[in-house]
Write a protein that binds this DNA or RNA. Structure first.
Lengths: 218, 218
DNA sequence: TGTTAGGTTAATATCGACATTTTAATCCTT
DNA sequence: AAGGATTAAAATGTCGATATTAACCTAACA
């Protein structure tokens, strides 16, 4: 992160601000306000915004500036549905291709997640928990060995996190930890047993079910 | 396309120039040269380049400018392998979800492709043929109904087209039309018969096999 | 009272210029 | 003559300024 140009730094922070919901959906991103917030000129800002347009987090209208992409129920369903399919594809390939090191990393990540769950649950530090959660699932899909596929997966995860954070804002310090924990154990078992069908079904449900809760918000 | 800002126009042309191979892999993209070529200032250029960085067609090194992303055999294999899986996923969902209008569009696109094949074959106009070819396959996958999935598919297609055009440059006016035509007929039959397994296998092979020819170039 | 026209304000898109950093070319030393 | 240090050249990243365009507010008219 350090020693990057301004545009990269702005991109990082602005992306966070959109994903976490600081700038809500549809919000007009005025240059003057952004200049003030990130302490840079218009050109680095335009570069960062251009990149966010490609990531489909920001919309641009010619001569009418930038605004945060709207959130819709249709997109929410589509993103989570697609995520379920992609994640399922990753898991399937990982089971086919994964080696012993891959298995070991899964066990390690599962342990880290489980042992910290209670701690973070007490603190209510959901962001930290989410990071471990992400690391656990990444350990599994990493076994697919395809950079392209993992990139697609990451893009969708980030787009989805915008909706997930929308839920966190309205349900601060609630958390459905316990349900997850059991699902994770089942998933690890199925994956290590190379049980393709079970693993695919489990991971698909693990993504789809929470998304149905989110649909109530929109 | 008209009435867009300079950056968008530059993005379009520069992207074409990279995908078609006018700017070869690894080529240093100097501001002075780009300014000359596209007749714009540095700022629209930087915006366009920033977007191409997100699309993974251009690399940026801080204070050391931009250059066209290198092509590697590893990436080639990965892209085509991933494309095969994604396209297969799209076809599968399309067979599940497609309606009658979808079927009609497939037949229409297949007809257009077939009836123009001989004409374009004589002219050697591969770009025009490729457009029809693309349209045919899009007609099929469109039935999956997922904007997100179709976007992922398009991104991968464009990344792959860089490698495909690399081949076209070295084999101008050759073309493997006939092999394709038969595969297309089989694919239409399987899709319209809602034969999931056959359709998935066919589309997967349709993508993988040509990629093996491309591997010889690198 | 609702609508439209005009003028005012604000924001955007682009350019030119400057400071900083990298790349190269030259020169000096051993 | 070779290697390293110094200097010159070129390219990059950023800012401020300007012209152009859209948004807004007011007022006059139907």
């Amino acid at each position: 992160m350090p020693q990057e140009n301004s545009a990269a730094k702005v991109l990082f922070h602005l992306k966070q601000d959109i994903l976490t919901g600081f700038f809500v959906a549809g919000h007009k991103l005025k240059m003057s306000a952004l200049k003030e917030r990130y302490q840079v000129g218009v050109n680095p800002l335009r570069e960062a915004l251009s990149q966010l347009v490609v990531m489909q987090l920001v919309q641009v209208q010619d001569q009418r500036g930038y605004r945060v992409c709207p959130v819709t129920q249709t997109e929410l369903v589509d993103i989570y549905d697609t995520r379920a399919h992609i994640e399922s594809l990753c898991v399937g390939l990982a089971i086919e291709r994964g080696d012993e090191a891959w298995e070991a990393n899964i066990v390690a990540a599962a342990y880290r997640l489980q042992s910290n769950a209670d701690l973070l649950k007490a603190d209510g530090d959901l962001q930290a928990w989410e990071k471990l959660h992400q690391g656990f699932h990444y350990a599994i899909v990493k076994g697919c060995g395809s950079e392209e596929l993992l990139r697609v997966r990451l893009d969708l995860y980030e787009k989805a996190s915008r909706y997930r954070n929308l839920w966190l804002q309205h349900n601060a310090g609630h958390g459905a930890f316990d349900v997850n924990q059991m699902e994770h154990e089942q998933l690890v078992t199925a994956v290590l047993a190379r049980d393709l069908d079970s693993a695919k079904k489990l991971i698909s449900q693990h993504i789809i079910v929470p998304s149905q809760v989110l649909q109530g918000l929109l």
